[in-house]
């Protein structure tokens, strides 16, 4: 059985050749599976917010913009090429339908931000399962590049 590597909230893990990267219960957060198939190098990133406006920038993986760039930096440092890297994303749901208040739709803003940053970096987005109001657990098998999304009350989605 493959080794499972858990990626927490605002976190990123990389694996090469084998291993299953997993991140649990993505609500409005977004999980991104990065892959360079030629190297069989994969990374799973779990971001929570669209933009890094923090002065200290302590936790780069909390935000879509700094998280994506740092992941790409670490992958290219291992020999990956940005022209080969592909990305699949899942998450960006709206868990509660609440009118008024200061809630807003963080999920939607996360999706838009991820799209924008990937376009800016010239990275191909090859699959996505985003939006809606369902939480998702995301598994990414580095050996095959296969992603799987588990949700409550919904069939597993392979992508």
């Amino acid at each position: 059985m493959n080794e499972k590597i858990t990626v927490g909230i605002a976190d990123m893990k990389m694996a090469r050749d084998s291993g299953v990267l997993i991140t649990y219960a993505l609500g409005s957060c977004i999980g991104l599976c990065f892959e360079d198939p030629a190297l069989r190098l994969g990374a799973l990133l779990h971001v929570m917010l669209p933009m890094n406006m923090e002065a200290g920038r302590k936790n780069v993986f909390k935000y879509a913009d700094t998280g994506i760039r740092e992941t790409l930096r670490q992958m290219t440092a291992k020999g990956a090429l940005k022209t080969r890297i592909t990305v699949k994303i899942a998450g960006g749901a709206k868990m509660f339908e609440v009118n008024g208040g200061s809630l807003g739709n963080i999920g939607q803003r996360n999706i838009e931000s991820v799209h924008t940053i990937l376009r800016q970096e010239g990275i191909r987005l090859i699959a996505e399962d985003v939006g809606g109001k369902v939480a998702r657990t995301l598994l990414f098998d580095v050996a095959t590049g296969q992603g799987c999304i588990r949700s409550y009350g919904r069939q597993d989605v392979l992508f």
Binding site: M48, M95, T137
Partner: peptide, 27 residues
């Protein structure tokens, strides 16, 4: 107070709602 919202789902994602709200200012 707003009208209540309701969800039945993974509690990690439910708890992430307040986290995401203040994520910009606090870890």
């Amino acid at each position: 107070l707003t009208v209540p919202g309701f969800a039945v789902d993974m509690q990690g994602a439910i708890l992430a709602v307040p986290m995401a709200m203040y994520g910009g200012t606090s870890d």
